[in-house]
Amino acid sequence: MDQIESTNAFSREFLEKLSILKQERAKAVADLSASGRTDEARFSRIQMNIVEIFEKMYHASVKMSPSQEHLETIGKSYMSYFETIPKNWQLALEEAKQFGNHEAVHIETLKLAQAEAIKTMFVEALSRIKS
């Protein structure tokens, strides 16, 4: 398999994983809403939005890469989003802690945890390719 095919195969597999994660969150939103657990449904929706953000960022990383055969370039670009995007959430978390806003603390913590889980998923998928 040449590099382009290999990169495309990786992208398909990773995006499929994100799609499954999104569907799980969407199902959680529906189930929790139906059972009157409105706050938890809202939290699941927020987490689903985080998955969508990083799904879009992966597409952006692929588009911005000078050469689609270079998974390493795509990977570096994508990983940089895990540094920049959660920064605001981290700031919001610190502010929420400072002012004792427990709901905001809970939400920002969930967002950061979801981002971290996606990053871990990506890093593990990359290391499987390399090994």
């Binding site: 706050d39 938890e40 939290f43 427990h102 709901e103 809970h106 913590t109 969930l110």
Partner: peptide
């Protein structure tokens, strides 16, 4: 546990 904590605080 984090969800329970949230609800208890509410």
């Amino acid at each position: 546990a984090s969800t329970v904590s949230f609800h208890l605080k509410k």
